[in-house]
């Protein structure tokens, strides 16, 4: 897989299909993979990677990159293609400047999951079918891929590649997974338990803004949190309640546009399960307004921006406190 991704990228540049390639390269450690723009085939062959740690969703970078001179090729995993379509729906990406290559994905691994399995001194890693062969300072270990997967990939919603000009691997299908199980567990709690859960999680927040900066739905020209006129502007939290609200405001801002790509949780240095906030809103919208998947197509109207006569008039007034 890695080889065909790199070769595709190199030949796209060599044949002049594009002038730049948006892909991944390794950082400090082999599992520390960052997005990168390559401008020559040599660069691609030298630095570009496609490993089980290429979790980064590259679609958001296209907002800026697709407006530059020349065509850019981008490599997108199935879940990334949802964000790609959603951003096009919002008129944020110039599609004609993009050559989209879909890459089928077995699920991305999480270095923390490997560490949690007791592996230390990681030096390299190769995926072979359902197994992950991990090189460590203490020798090679084979780990079932399922145990190394990041949390979001364990509830993968779809292997379908949307709106791609080329596909590496095979076209996949939508999957039936229990991605709402954790949300349901939270819903089953009492209001006090749930409040305590979120206070505990959200109070870990250091307001690094990584979740906002990585989120493909958080792509406003000026973020409300940076806008002195918005009334919610703040860089650092003045009180512990403010950082809690930061995440809740953010979840509401992306409601109906969040594709559930899980980038927020992946990048959170404090390991806050932020995607659960978004999933709760997705689940509620599905229940109230019919199943809707942001970025699954170009036509369906987002439930938060559409009105039909059949819409239930659910509100805090009819629902009451504690959902009664």
């Amino acid at each position: 897989m890695q080889r065909s991704v790199i070769e595709t990228a190199a030949s796209l540049l060599e044949t002049g299909v594009c002038t730049r390639v948006l892909g991944w390269k390794t950082g400090e450690f082999f599992y520390d993979v960052t997005p990168a723009v390559f401008t020559s085939a040599e660069e691609v062959r030298k630095d570009m990677v496609f490993t089980p740690f290429c979790g980064a969703n590259l679609s958001k970078y296209l907002i800026a990159e697709s407006r530059k001179e020349g065509k850019i090729a981008v490599f997108l995993k199935p879940c990334d293609t949802f964000s790609f379509v959603q951003l096009q729906k919002e008129h944020r990406i110039c599609r004609e400047n993009v050559y989209a290559v879909g890459v089928q994905c077995p699920g991305m691994s999480d270095p923390d999951a490997l560490k949690a399995l007791g592996l230390k001194g990681l030096t390299g890693c190769v995926q072979e079918g359902d197994t992950l062969r991990v090189d460590t300072l203490y020798g090679e270990k084979a780990v079932p891929l399922a145990d190394a997967l990041s949390l979001r990939c364990r509830g993968c919603k779809s292997k379908r590649l949307h709106d791609c000009d080329a596909i590496i691997g095979t076209q996949g299908k939508d999957l039936q997974t229990s991605r709402f199980a954790q949300v349901e567990a939270l819903e089953a709690m009492t209001a006090e338990e749930r409040f305590a859960f979120w206070r505990k999680e959200l109070s870990k927040c250091i307001r690094c803004n990584a979740c906002r900066n990585v989120c493909p739905a958080c792509s406003c020209e000026t973020c409300v949190f940076d806008n002195p006129d918005s009334g919610v502007q703040n860089k650092a939290a003045a009180s512990s309640f403010e950082e809690n609200l930061f995440h809740i405001i953010r979840a509401f801002h992306v409601a109906g546009r969040c594709t559930d790509c899980g980038e927020c949780t992946r990048v959170c240095p404090q390991h806050i399960p932020l995607h659960l906030l978004n999933r709760k809103l997705i689940k509620d919208m599905n229940t109230l307004y019919g199943v809707y998947q942001a970025g699954a197509d170009f036509e369906t109207k987002p439930p938060m921006l559409a009105f039909t006569l059949e819409d239930p008039e659910a509100s805090i007034i009819t629902q009451g406190r504690n959902g009664q």
């Binding site: 919002e90 008129h91 944020r92 792509s219 406003c220 020209e221 000026t222 806008n227 109207k301 987002p302 921006l305 559409a306 009105f307």
Partner: peptide, 13 residues
């Protein structure tokens, strides 16, 4: 206009 993303949300509603 300086803050507008051009996302069409307002047009839709």
């Amino acid at each position: 206009e300086l803050m507008c993303n051009g996302c069409s949300s307002c047009e839709k509603v």
